[in-house]
Design a protein around this nucleic acid. Structure first.
Lengths: 161, 161
DNA sequence: TTAATTTCTAAAGTATACTTTAGGTAAAGG
DNA sequence: CCTTTACCTAAAGTATACTTTAGAAATTAA
């Protein structure tokens, strides 16, 4: 369909073109639009048309997801990109840097937990009141799903083992 | 209800007792049973009864989840625990060790990606063909969601920027 | 122009990890 | 004994990240 798009007088990329360039499914790109990660315009017939810079936007989304970031977080980070002009290398560099900081934190948290697990392997506990793993709240809880105080807090009827 | 359970003649813990001891919601414990993570028996009235060792099992589940392991993976890991007897500290130590290996891998993968991101920050690319981030498949893809070859592969109509 | 492709929207489906709801039974306390 | 509390099952709902389906309109290729 868009085989000779190069010859067209610059009407933007179709969603199929973008899918081909990024490896994403067309449905995924539509979903990302609904989530505010890309903002295509529409042609006369109502079809989406994208800019070349959107390839980079979507590539960023893919990489960020591989790092474990949620779409909400990615949208948030991408707010820092300029709306009216095409993002420059410097713009991308800027958000990538903030990104790296998040990554460092994530790695540090995992390492900390690993070290605590080492302590638990040593003592063979995994359910003792003093266990460090049960008593810290310093690790990013993906979803704050209630109290869930993890052993160690005094249970209602404290009848110790 | 089970306030004086201590005085009862050892009929096991109720689901409410277990919830109180672990901080988990009763519904979550039922769900974990449906997922094969605990195996309570039933009393004459059809209610679940748990062993003390199940506190430890569920605690393990909670810790494992904080490390980012899925229920499927946790179930797999817990297969290594003995069925017929109460797991000993050595049993727990054994699976915690395997667990640590997984963790190390996870951390290593993240660090590797971080280093590649550094390269990308340096070159400001994030969409170039040579970018390391787009060209490696060595990071655990949570869900193998298709080809998704991430830029860098020759696109169908390779019309370079 | 006609036929094949692509795209469109809206809604429903998938997987994970649970919670909530509804209607009903069992156990515990007074 | 009776009321309250805890528990039971099954089904539906929630959030995240998408895919699939259905029916129709736009675009492109021959």
């Amino acid at each position: 369909m868009s085989k000779n798009r190069r010859l067209a007088i610059r009407s933007g990329l179709t969603i199929g073109d973008l899918a081909a360039r990024t490896g994403l499914a067309v449905s995924a790109i539509r979903y990302y639009e609904s989530e505010g990660l890309v903002h295509p315009w529409r042609n006369a017939g109502g079809q989406r048309r994208f800019e070349r810079a959107d390839i980079r936007r979507l590539s960023f989304v893919m990489v960020a997801q591989r790092f474990g970031f949620s779409i909400a977080r990615i949208r948030e980070v991408m707010q820092a990109l300029p709306d009216q002009r095409t993002p420059t290398a410097a713009d991308w560099r800027k958000i990538s840097t903030g990104f790296r900081a998040d990554l460092d934190q994530q790695i540090a948290a995992l390492e900390q937990m690993r070290d605590k697990l080492d302590g638990c392997i040593g003592c063979g506990c995994l359910s003792m009141k003093a266990c460090a793993l049960y008593n810290d709240g310093d690790v990013a809880q993906k979803n704050g799903a209630g109290p869930r105080y993890l052993l160690g807090d005094t249970p209602p009827d404290g009848d110790a083992k």
